[in-house]
């Protein structure tokens, strides 16, 4: 090995070390930024101790024919949430649907990782991945699309152990100051539905309610459009029982 080659290797190693140091510092700084952003969003949401909201629930699932229904949702800190339909039978996606704004972001025992930038409904957002530290948590991973300017979660993609992956898209209006959405669209995967004709006693040829493409993608959607909120007026615990 000649001297020129040796000095090149030394310089190369120094440079590599320097780049690594810069990289680690940048990552650490980015993680700090993201944590600070999540903390700010959390603080905004934290203004709401409880709320009662009225709205309309639309269900769009290929094999379900369900009319639009009026609903009421109740929330109380830290994680009490209840959705009630005014009378009658309600059909809601299992588990995941009880996830509300507060529980989306308020789990403290999670690590925030920056995952770049994204655009939701034409709004530039920061993508943050939340990894729960608790190994037994039902939520495996939550990806949040945060509007940095207004400190609002525009979209959340949550993967759970029991109920698969679901997307929540949030649209804000007059209650944006409290980080409470006017519209929530909840999308999730559905399984096949088929009952033997011997069970339903329907031997005549039936036509499917939706077109074949809708049945193929097996994506279900539930949409809630909130008309009004009553915020921080107190709610009896009995509502959640």
């Amino acid at each position: 090995m000649n001297i020129a080659h040796h000095s090149f290797l030394v310089r190369y190693r120094r440079m590599l070390c320097l780049l690594c140091c810069i990289g680690f510092t940048a990552t650490a700084a980015q993680a700090q930024d993201v944590s600070a952003l999540v903390a700010k969003v959390r603080a905004k949401i934290d203004q709401v101790n409880d709320y009662t909201a009225e709205g309309r629930l639309k269900t769009n699932i290929a094999f379900l024919k369900v009319p639009v229904s009026r609903i009421k949702t109740y929330f109380k800190k830290p994680d009490k949430f209840r959705l009630r339909k005014e009378g009658g039978i309600s059909v809601l996606p299992k588990g995941g649907f009880s996830v509300n704004m507060q529980s989306l972001i308020l789990f403290n025992d999670a690590m925030a990782i920056a995952a770049g930038d994204g655009v939701v409904d034409g709004v530039k957002t920061k993508i943050v991945k939340l990894l729960p530290n608790n190994e037994n948590s039902d939520v495996i991973l939550s990806t949040l699309y945060i509007d940095e300017t207004n400190l609002l979660v525009k979209k959340a993609v949550t993967t759970t152990r029991e109920n698969g992956t679901y997307d929540i898209t949030l649209t804000y209006g007059q209650y944006a100051a409290y980080a409470l959405p006017d519209k929530v669209i909840f999308a999730f995967n559905t399984k096949d539905y088929k009952l033997p004709k011997g069970v339903t006693l329907e031997f005549e040829d039936a036509e499917k309610p939706a077109d074949a493409s809708q049945l193929k993608n097996k994506k279900g959607k539930v949409e809630i459009v909130y008309s009004s909120y009553v915020i921080n007026k107190g709610i009896d615990d009995a509502v959640f029982k």
């Binding site: 369900v66 009319p67 039978i89 088929k194």
Partner: peptide
């Protein structure tokens, strides 16, 4: 409960 879908009335 119908064979291919469910109806809520």
């Amino acid at each position: 409960f119908k064979s291919d879908y469910v109806v809520l009335i």
